[in-house]
Design a protein around this nucleic acid. Structure first.
Lengths: 344, 344
DNA sequence: ACGCGTAGGGTAAACGCTTTCTAGAATCGT
DNA sequence: ACGATTCTAGAAAGCGTTTACCCTACGCGT
């Protein structure tokens, strides 16, 4: 196992100074052709690669963007990660991925690690519990990261105000829920159950809010008995529908917090002998890849996950006046499939 | 925006030398309690965090593991990534994620970047086309990474031999296919269609191989008309089954290259008026989270994805004699659900 | 012929940390 | 009470780059 060659070795072999090697490598300084060739030959000969840490130490940019999310396997996050990774690569950046599994302490630790790493951008993804504690924490993050020269990006969660030193990239979460509910309403449904997510989470609160607003727009009373809460799993959807069914509340449609919950709900309906969409229409959220494979194919609200990720990186990397606190909102739309049927 | 403080600032504020600050921070050297307290106060006061690049440059370990895979959203990869991330965190490492989308040039570039980064481990995930070119490339990777002090890990792909300087973490791919096919055979099926993946890919070749071996073990002739190839998408499964159906070959069961293909296959069967498992039994591979949500719930071969990822990191990080070229093989098993029915 | 702008390239000072070497102070054994 | 240890902490030498600064040589206008 040879020791890895340094720039001095290259310089020695090429018979030039280290400065010249550095200049050939970065290509931003005039170098005679003959010299360039000699250096390049030496680089190839020694199989030399620069030491990224030395470069970062000297140059002060690390070419790394960090992605901080709940987990890595939920399609919602995976697709945002995909967009981030894509754009990062396009911008010649490496992509650090960290997961919190909802633990604020872990998040704090990660942000600290990212300050240590001099990450160009730190992208925090997904809904949160919008408490005072959260705001404070974010403020500390923003300050710490700003001093480290990093950009803080809030992705798929609400902005903290135009003065807050962070970029926000949202999608029209409530709007999507509004459309979904409206779709059911204009199909004649009036008794629409809402299978909500955890209470307090900005993502699911917004979806619930869109649901409410749509009902109000159609002058349909919001029946609290039709609104239930759980987590975001299939199991939760399954159990929520079971409970709904056994409680005896009447409903002809379901709006689920996401596609997993919707899948569980459809399973519960099937188990109870109800047909979808014959007896009950179902609509999900996130337009997960498996939505078209369910039976019936699930109508769902499409979220531009990848574009969220790409936009986050793009905005974070563009320097210039005011670029540190922008706010963009991407649109959502319904992917119509077979799980909704007009009522008569 | 304050400039970020350095260790000298901390030392100055605490009235000690930088060496002392460094020692307090790493905690591996005796420091008087009073001194430690002073330093810690200064650290908190200044909100100081170390510069990871300076540390890596000096200490020569970067605390980063790199994950190189086809993409980030396919459940197969996402779950392996999850395992890697989990174990990396547990081992106090950061996790760099890169995708190749099958482009060898990109892969080469990534490996170079990882050499630059001094990554502790570089984990290459997923099946490949086992050509001479591939072997050569891997050999170059291994050498370059070894010189950089990195470990090369092949995860979910075959070993390159006991002398090859890389760690291999596989799962029993052919074995899983063997079990799946045997399961169908012992349920009485004899005409079993194989919906294969791309030809030449180690992952799908192995699954095909397991299929063949099981048939042979049951003394059932392998009918080439029953073996078709496509990519790994739902669409591919859909089209392959359509073609099979219109070609008129008889079959009572399908073994699909993975769950996506299986889902597409079931959709095609349904579209053709065939019932699953009434007319045709179907079995998938990978035991994706949506498998239980399909109708009928899909029987599938379970792969310990997360454990693959965790093991990869664990082995790569353990130092010591011979630790650079180990080979482990994890088991697979069938997750039985409702898409297989005994043939009378 | 002379001063000057510029291409080409070398020297050395950062960048922020870890770690070896060294040395004074405190403690201990006898 | 005195040399021998043991603590504790500072000085300084790297780690591998980039880059500011400096110098030489050459072409050119006048």
């Amino acid at each position: 196992m040879n020791k890895r060659p340094t720039i001095r070795d290259v310089a020695a072999m090429a018979g030039v100074s280290v400065a010249t090697v550095s200049r050939v490598l970065s290509g931003d300084y005039p170098v005679a052709n003959a010299t360039r060739t000699k250096v390049q030959r030496a680089v190839r000969e020694l199989d030399y690669v620069v030491n990224a840490h030395a470069r970062a130490l000297s140059g002060s940019t690390s070419n790394v963007v960090a992605l901080v999310m709940y987990d890595v396997v939920t399609p919602f996050f995976a697709f945002i990660a995909s967009g981030v990774e894509y754009q990062a690569t396009e911008s010649d950046r490496l992509c650090l991925v960290c997961t919190t599994h909802g633990d604020p302490d872990r998040e704090l630790e990660i942000v600290k690690l990212m300050r240590e790493q001099h990450a160009d951008a730190v992208i925090l993804v997904g809904g949160v519990n919008m408490t005072d504690d959260y705001r404070e924490r974010m403020y500390r993050y923003a300050k710490g990261l700003e001093d480290a020269g990093s950009r803080l990006v809030l992705c798929g969660r609400p902005s903290l105000g135009p003065d807050f030193p962070a970029i926000t990239v949202e999608y029209d979460n409530a709007g999507g829920a509004y459309s979904a509910t409206s779709h059911l309403l204009s199909s004649g449904h009036r008794r629409i159950a809402m299978l909500g997510g955890p209470i307090g989470n900005t993502t699911f609160d917004a979806r619930l809010d869109g649901y409410r607003r749509a009902l109000e727009a159609f002058r349909v009373a919001v029946d609290p008995a039709l609104i239930v809460h759980g987590d975001m799993s299939q199991e939760s959807g399954f159990r929520q529908v079971q409970r709904l069914l056994s409680s005896g509340v009447a409903f002809t449609a379901i709006f689920a917090a996401n596609d997993f919950v919707a899948a569980g709900a459809m399973r519960a309906l099937r188990a109870a002998g109800k047909s979808v969409p014959g007896d009950v229409s179902v609509i999900g959220y996130d337009d997960t890849p498996f939505a078209p494979e369910l039976t019936p194919a699930l109508t769902s609200v499409h979220v531009p996950h990848e574009q969220l990720g790409r936009t986050a990186v793009k905005l974070a990397l563009q320097r210039g006046e005011g670029s540190a606190r922008q706010h963009v909102m991407l649109g959502t739309h319904i992917a119509m499939r077979d799980s909704v049927r007009p009522l008569i």
